[in-house]
Structures are given as C-alpha cells and as structure tokens.
Simulated scan of single mutants.
Amino acid sequence: MGRSGQLARSLAERASKLELIALGRPELDLECPGSADAAIRQFGPHIVINAAAYTDVDGAEVEPGRAFRINAEAAGEIASAARALDIPVIHLSTDYVFDGSVTGALIEDARTAPLGVYGRSKLEGEEQVSAANPKHMILRTAWIYSHFGRNFVKSIYEAAESRGELSVVADQRGSPTSAMDLSDALIALLDRWDGQGSTYHLAGSGEASRYELACEVMAVRNRLGLHVAKVEPIESDDWPGRAKRPRISILDCSKFERDFGIRLPEWRNSVAEVVQRLAAAR
C-alpha cells in the first residue's frame, strides 16, 4: 500500500524479480473508508506491505484528524481487508512511538509513549493492525532516507548546493535507515516469515545524531568534489518545529537479525550510496 513514498518507490526499484503492485490514488485512497477493502479484493495479493503513511510530523499537529485517519483507521482497515482473504500484512511503523527518555537502544517491548500526534497516530495504527489481523508484522523503522522524495539526507544535500552554512540539531540520536536497504530486507523477508503475529525493529546499523548525519553528507560531498557547507550544531529547543521529537530513539534490531538472519548495512555506507546517486542525477 502506497505508491509515491520513498519506501514504495525503493521497493519498486529493488523488486525486479517479484510481481509488485504498488497502489495509490485513485485505486486506493486511505482517506476514503472502504477503499482498502475494494483494492485488496480487486488485486488479491499474496502479502500486503503497508508503506503508506501521513509522515509530516509538524503537519500532524495541525491536521490530527487526517493523521489518525491515514495512520490508524486506514491501517486497521487494510489489515482487516487482508484478513478476510487470509492474507498476511506487514505494517511499517516508527521510532516516534517512543518518547526518547531511554538512553540505550530500544527493544520491541520497551514502553511506548509518543510525544506528538504523528507518534500517537502510528501507535494506534499498530494496535489496530494487530487487533484486525493475526497474520501481521509490525515493523518499526527510523529516519528513512533515499534519493527519492523528501527526507533529511536529501534536504541537507540540496541545501548545501546553495548555502554556506547549515544549522542542524545535535541532541537527537537515532538509527538512520536507507529505504533501499529496508526494501532489500523486506524482499528477503518474504521467504522467511511464516505470518505469525509479531513486532520487530529494523533500521540501519549504528547510531547518529542529526548533526552527525548532516556532517557525513558533507564528507561524501567533499570526496565527490562538490561544494561543502559548514554544519553548525544546535539544540532541539532552537529548532522552530511544532512537534516534539524523541531525543533518543535508537532501535535495537537484534531480534529481527536473530529470527531472520538479516542485518541492515552500517548507515555511513548507505548514506554514501544515496549521496552518490543524488550527485549522479545533477
């Protein structure tokens, strides 16, 4: 589910050997009740991956009804429609279901306490999916980036094209995740998951602050001979966002690696690949 997002587009690029049906408007409109049921019955897939979401963290504070409709209600409808046809569903969720108060890496059973509307809507989506379909996987990931769409790495890359200095938050730490790496893992998972209901974390290996991630983008730009902007660290309180973000939301992915033998690459290597693709597209 989802067609225009960066994960959906990455899946479409990586899944060359699979019959992938990426659904979006007009076939699937998550703001329209009943749309998911009609689409799933029409196409009858073997498995549903729900990669669609309302992801504007600040925008969700202004449009809470829309965020909950897409991230929670529609997610439950997708899972219910899949269950009616005995189809398992993989539902993508987020590190924003946590409040950032834990200093270490977060396991799947860690206490959830989202800080804003986006996180609350995604947590309710998890609950609706798990209640609607016993054949589900809740897959929490974090800080997704790619050469597609809008994301932090791409924004930093593009800002460096015209600016000499960038201010980036240094007190938020998480698990940067390449959409391409995540897509590869999802494709490999299809032959290894038995459909048993479960929750997993899956994100890029290692951890970073937003500031460190931005510095790595600059380091790769420098190696490519591109203009490099100076990156200045700032505190979260100095960034003018409507929504609170978790200060620390590093995901422990050892359960997923243990059960499926899959571990995503170290985030610096994947950032380099994305920056190189952005540079090649200039």
Rank of each mutant, 00 (worst) to 15 (best):
T55F: 13
D56K: 14
V57W: 06
V57T: 09
G59L: 10
E63R: 12
P64T: 05
G65A: 10
R66V: 07
F68N: 01
A74E: 06
A75R: 03
G76P: 01
E77Y: 05
I78A: 09
A79H: 07
S80K: 15
S80Y: 12
S80T: 11
S80C: 14
A81K: 03
A82W: 02
A82K: 00
A82N: 02
R83C: 10
R83L: 10
R83G: 08
L85A: 15
D86Q: 15
D86V: 14
D86N: 15
I87N: 06
I87V: 13
I87T: 04
P88E: 03
P88N: 04
P88H: 01
P88R: 03
V89G: 02
I90G: 00
I90Q: 04
I90S: 05
H91P: 07
L92K: 07
S93M: 02
T94F: 01
T94C: 01
D95C: 08
D95G: 12
D99K: 09
D99V: 02
S101Y: 10
S101Q: 14
A105L: 14
A105H: 09
A105F: 13
L106N: 06
L106K: 06
L106M: 09
I107Y: 10
D109N: 14
A110D: 07
T112R: 14
T112K: 13
T112L: 11
T112S: 10
L115F: 06
L115C: 07
V117M: 08
V117H: 04
R120I: 08
R120G: 12
S121Q: 02
K122N: 00
K122D: 01
L123K: 03
L123H: 04
E124M: 12
G125E: 05
E127V: 12
Q128I: 06
V129Y: 01
V129F: 04
A131N: 08
A132H: 04
K135E: 10
M137A: 12
I138C: 05
R140W: 07
T141V: 10
W143I: 09
I144Q: 14
Y145G: 04
S146K: 04
S146V: 02
H147K: 13
F148A: 08
G149P: 01
G149W: 00
G149K: 04
R150H: 14
N151R: 00
F152H: 01
K154W: 06
K154R: 12
K154L: 07
K154T: 08
I156F: 08
Y157V: 02
A159Y: 12
A160Q: 13
